[in-house]
Design a protein around this nucleic acid. Structure first.
Length: 281
DNA sequence: ATGGTTGGCGTCCAA
């Protein structure tokens, strides 16, 4: 079975290509980044779970590959996000979600929109806020995102590892996962509230709008054969303001990068935007 | 079948 939803067409000069990828350690997988860049030539790369402080982030390698503009929000051992760009970005900022000091967000202005790169807490094993502090943290994070989304007043793209698979066909088995953190109704409802708090478009599902199409971005390391089992979940997302909808060109999930040696457990997700239909930068 | 694997300044934790 071919897991790639649909290959992207050749990248043309009028395309702005965005990638979001939970890389699970940027240092362990720097060659995978090089492979991603060779294959797709993205203009902007948003990474999550970089697991590296800014002083050990492989900035020189990205510089050499043409990503001169970097917004790093790193943390030792855990979390960490980074937005790397070939085009100039401005107004770099970080939000301290849940007042925990975790490196789970970085934003920039680029390409005529605000770009927010997120790593939402996974939430632990037990979907019960009264006994699982990690799940309580996840729910609080989502509540803060709802308020944040309601306050947006510019064309915005938000993306990253949101650690929720909202739709029935965003998981391999809706029924089997109803009580599994990432697909519980309480999480999906919280995600839907964020979706309603701003005029969002789910930019990846937009190109596969037949809701019966299974789309996954993550496959557990624990499966003997991830591809054969194909018990995936769509945990990674790109949402764009409705005002940016005319610029949407194509999207895909780069499952080839889940199949390489020592892969991340997440595949990159890729969005192509029509530069001529974006607001002036 | 409640297992299984991965990365990190790590000898367990979080994912």
């Amino acid at each position: 079975m071919d897991l790639t939803p649909r290959p992207l067409g050749l990248k043309s000069d009028d395309t702005l290509r965005l990638v979001s990828w939970n890389i699970n350690s940027v240092r362990a997988r720097i060659h995978h980044v090089e492979h991603l860049i060779e294959t797709y030539q993205p203009d902007v790369i948003c990474l999550q779970e970089t697991k590296a402080m800014d002083d050990v982030f492989p900035s020189k390698i990205f510089q050499k590959l043409g990503y001169e503009h970097r917004a790093l929000h790193g943390q030792k051992s855990h979390h960490g996000v980074a937005t790397l760009s070939r085009i100039k970005h401005t107004n770099e900022a970080k939000i301290n979600w849940c007042e925990k000091g975790d490196a789970r967000h970085v934003q920039v202005d680029v390409g005529g929109f605000e770009l927010h790169n997120f790593y939402v807490p996974a939430g632990g094993d037990e979907p019960d806020v009264t006994i699982n502090e990690k799940f309580a943290h996840k729910m609080q994070f989502l509540a803060e995102m709802e308020t944040w989304a309601g306050s947006l007043n510019k064309p915005t793209i938000m993306l990253g590892d949101l650690n929720i698979a909202p739709l029935e066909h965003d998981v391999w088995s809706h029924k089997a996962l109803l009580k599994v953190v990432s697909h519980t109704p309480v999480e999906v409802e919280a995600m839907n509230r964020i979706f309603k708090a701003h005029d969002w478009v789910d930019a990846v599902r937009h190109f596969y709008d037949d809701d019966s199409t299974k789309l996954y971005t993550w496959w557990s390391y624990r499966a003997r054969d991830w591809k054969a089992a194909n018990k995936g979940r769509r945990l990674d997302h790109i949402w764009v303001s409705n005002s940016l909808k005319p610029a949407l060109k194509d999207a895909t999930i780069a499952t080839n990068l889940r199949g390489v040696e020592k892969p991340s457990d997440h595949a990159p997700i890729i969005l192509d935007l029509d530069k001529s239909k974006l607001p002036d930068a």
